[in-house]
Design a protein around this nucleic acid. Structure first.
Lengths: 210, 210
DNA sequence: GTCTATAAGCCGATAGAC
DNA sequence: GTCTATCGGCTTATAGAC
């Protein structure tokens, strides 16, 4: 009995560690080079295991791609939330702060844009791919999170505004990738601030001050 | 002499036709499936020639990718200009009309987003790739074309405004690809209209009327 | 759960004939 | 300028031993 438990526990713990090592390797390689440029062999090598073990934990490369995006959902949303909340200012300031946070991150040498958007670009002809659904769900969560904050700030059209901000953010990710100039991300932040301010002015009855 | 000219002319004409057939095939396949998902064999097959002939006309796959994007530069800009000019209305209307044009195009079943952005996503870890430079130049031309029109309309900050519109357009391309819902492109058009109108109101001394 | 070994085929690119 | 044929290497995925 005791040995059974012990062995079982050791096995599941090791299994989890191995699975996480594979996922870590997939993260670095898929994000760094793109999903089609990276082979299953390369991921197994980086994880320090054999391909056979990888296929024990993930039933296919597509399955691994999906798990890779799934693992990025919460960390990415948390980063947005952190930049938003750490800025103490108006709702315009907080919105712009998210863009400044992305701009700062984009200057790191290993930054390669948004993994969700880049994967969607590679899987464009497979709209039903499970990884595509994970990506869409992630972007929807970001949009809903923004809408909730604009709603809480008492703004009308919070849903429409949130969607506009998401469009600017995804534009910032894409445009930065092609120009490699973080000024584009800061410009998107300025545009986002203008859109939020525009709504806010429509809402309150204050005169235009600029 | 006569035969020399005749043979030379026939050869160059055939060569041009072959090269165009290869480029047409590359366009359809690269745009439809992505540059890494498409093999040189597949392009040669679709063009109805052998791989050896393809390599006579293009020195490498990277060369062919670059030529593919180069061939999309003018047609894409022409489509934007057409949508802009065919709309007779205010500068806000004309700006929004570009987004409506893209939204309409996006509903075609073979639409797969912006080839420049998708290629940039696939080549993210090769910023110096010649195709990347072609993509950046294309996006800059679009931005400059917009700025010129906003300038002509007598708007201050025409350059900044043009950049904001490009960011919304690239966001529309990317977001549509992940959600497959053209409402996102129309929403980007609404945001673009708001940004243009905002600048315009700052420019003239008219009161806010909405 | 992890290993070695291999299937079966596709990849970009090239050699040499005509 | 276009062909047939092929190089060496890499691709996803699986068989069977321990």
């Amino acid at each position: 009995m005791y040995t059974h438990w012990s062995v079982y526990f050791a096995m599941t713990r090791d299994s989890k560690q191995t699975k996480n090592r594979i996922l870590d390797a997939a993260n670095q390689l898929f994000y760094g080079q793109g999903i089609r440029a990276v082979s299953v062999d390369a991921i197994a090598d980086k994880a320090g295991i054999t391909k056979r073990t990888l296929y024990y934990h993930f039933k296919s490369k597509d399955d691994l791609i999906t798990a890779y995006l799934q693992s990025r959902d919460q960390p990415n949303l948390a980063a947005f939330a952190r930049w938003f909340e750490r800025c103490d200012g108006s709702i315009e300031d907080k919105t712009q702060a998210i863009f400044s946070g992305v701009a700062r991150a984009s200057r790191r040498p290993d930054w390669q844009g948004c993994g969700f958007l880049r994967t969607a670009a590679e899987l464009a002809n497979m709209p039903g791919h499970p990884a595509m659904k994970v990506g869409a769900a992630h972007k929807l969560r970001f949009e809903a999170w923004l809408a909730q904050h604009y709603m809480a700030a008492g703004m009308s059209d919070a849903d429409a505004l949130a969607r506009h901000i998401v469009l600017l953010m995804d534009g910032a990710f894409s445009t930065m990738l092609i120009h490699r100039d973080s000024a584009y991300i800061e410009a998107a932040g300025v545009a986002a601030r203008a859109l939020v301010g525009h709504k806010e002015r429509n809402n309150t009855d204050q005169p235009e001050l600029e």
